[in-house]
C-alpha cells in the first residue's frame, strides 16, 4: 500500500494495527477487540481526511499509484468476457488507448479508455496513458463499429493529456481529437463517459462527448493540469495548489458549473482502498444510465447531447 502525504495518519494507524496482529500471531493472544477498535479508527480517519480534501489533494488521489486503471474496471465489469480489439487500420496499435467489446449482464457494450501502465515497464509501453493520434483514431473506429451494430459505448477517461510528441504532431494530433469531437456528437447509440482518474484537456475530451458524462469522486477534469497552469500563469510550478483551486477542476465544481452530468461516489478513503467495491459501483452506474438512455429515440438522444454541450459557457449579452 502506498500512502500520500496527507494520508500519514491513516498509515500510522495501519502500521500499529499490523504490529498488533503480528504480535498476536506470535503469542496467540486474542486481539479481536482491539483490532476492531483500530479498524474503526482507521475508517474514522479515512472519512475525516477524505471528507475534506482540497482540490490539489484530490488531484493527488486521482494519480494514486494504487488506483485502478481502465482495463481493471473493464475486466471486472464484463466478468472476463472483454475482447480487446486493436489498431486504427492506418498506422498502428496505440497501447495508451484500449477498446473492445464486452458483455454486462449478457448485453454487449463497446468499452474504450486510456490505459496507464501498472509497473515501470508497462508505464512505458502504455506511454503513461498519453495517446498518440492513432489512439484517438482507434477509439473512433471502434465507436463507429459499435454504432454500426447498434451497441452502446462506455468510455473510461484517465489521461494526463494527449501525447505532445514529434510524431504525434506529424500524424495530426489536433485533427484526430477534433474529428472525434465532431463524430462523437453524432453517434446514434448511447454514449456514457466516466472520468476514473485524470481528465486532462483535449486528450480527455477526445473520448469524452457523451449523453452522460460522469466523474468519480476523486478525479479531476479541466483544460490543463494544475502544474502546467502554474508554469504558464506564474512561470513556476510552486503555485500548483493555487492553480488547482482556481481551475475549479473537482467533480463538485464541474457539476455545479453544469459541465458534467453526475458524480460517482467512491468507497470511503478512495477507489484505491477497495477496487472491487469501486468496480461494483461503476457497473451499477453504467447499467442504470444505459437503461435510461436506451429508452430515448436515437435522433432525440443526439439532439439532446448536442444541445447539452452547446449550452456550456458563460457570456454576458448586452441589450441591443
Amino acid at each position: 500500500m502506498n500512502y500520500l502525504e496527507f494520508e500519514k495518519p491513516i498509515e500510522e494507524l495501519q502500521t500499529q494495527l499490523e504490529k498488533i496482529q503480528e504480535a498476536a500471531a506470535k503469542s496467540g493472544m486474542d486481539v479481536s477487540k482491539i483490532t476492531s477498535e483500530m479498524e474503526e479508527k482507521i475508517k474514522e480517519a479515512r472519512t475525516k481526511i477524505y471528507g475534506n480534501l482540497t482540490p490539489w489533494q484530490r488531484v493527488q488521489v486521482s494519480r494514486h499509484p494504487d488506483r485502478p486503471y481502465t482495463l481493471a474496471y473493464i475486466d471486472y465489469i464484463t466478468e472476463g468476457t472483454f475482447m480487446e480489439l486493436h489498431g486504427d487500420r492506418t498506422v498502428k496499435d496505440d497501447k495508451a488507448m484500449v477498446g473492445g467489446f464486452g458483455s454486462i449482464d449478457g448485453k454487449t457494450v463497446m468499452f474504450i479508455g486510456q490505459q496507464k501502465g501498472i509497473n515501470t515497464k508497462m508505464r512505458q509501453i502504455r506511454n503513461f496513458g498519453m495517446p498518440n493520434p492513432e489512439g484517438y483514431r482507434k477509439a473512433l473506429r471502434l465507436m463507429k463499429l459499435a454504432e454500426k451494430f447498434n451497441k452502446p459505448i462506455v468510455t473510461l477517461i484517465d489521461t494526463p493529456g494527449a501525447f505532445p510528441g514529434l510524431e504525434a504532431e506529424e500524424r495530426g494530433q489536433g485533427e484526430a481529437i477534433a474529428r472525434n469531437l465532431l463524430e462523437m456528437s453524432q453517434l446514434k447509440v448511447p454514449v456514457i463517459c466516466i472520468v476514473i482518474g485524470e481528465g486532462a484537456s483535449g486528450g480527455a475530451l477526445g473520448i469524452g462527448i457523451g449523453d452522460k458524462v460522469l466523474m468519480l469522486e476523486n478525479t479531476w477534469y479541466s483544460v490543463i493540469s494544475p502544474e502546467s497552469c502554474s508554469s504558464i500563469l506564474w512561470r513556476n510550478w510552486n503555485n500548483k495548489e493555487r492553480a488547482a483551486e482556481a481551475l475549479k477542476l473537482t467533480p463538485n465544481d464541474m457539476l455545479g458549473n453544469k459541465l458534467i452530468d453526475g458524480i460517482v461516489p467512491e468507497p470511503i478513503g478512495g477507489a484505491h482502498t477497495n477496487h472491487e467495491e469501486t468496480f461494483k459501483i461503476v457497473k451499477d452506474v453504467i447499467l442504470k444510465n444505459l437503461a435510461q438512455l436506451e429508452k430515448l429515440d436515437p435522433k432525440k438522444r443526439v439532439a439532446q447531447r448536442i444541445d447539452k454541450f452547446c449550452a456550456m459557457g458563460v457570456v454576458n449579452e448586452e441589450e441591443l
Binding site: L181, L205, G208, I209, C229, K248, M254, L259, I306, C310
Partner: peptide, 19 residues
C-alpha cells in the same frame, strides 16, 4: 485558461455545431 473547463467545452460545442 482563465475560463478553465468552460473553455475546454467550447471545443465540444463548436465541433458539435459543425457536425
Amino acid at each position: 485558461m482563465m475560463e478553465a473547463a468552460f473553455s475546454l467545452m467550447q471545443m465540444a460545442k463548436t465541433a458539435a455545431k459543425l457536425s
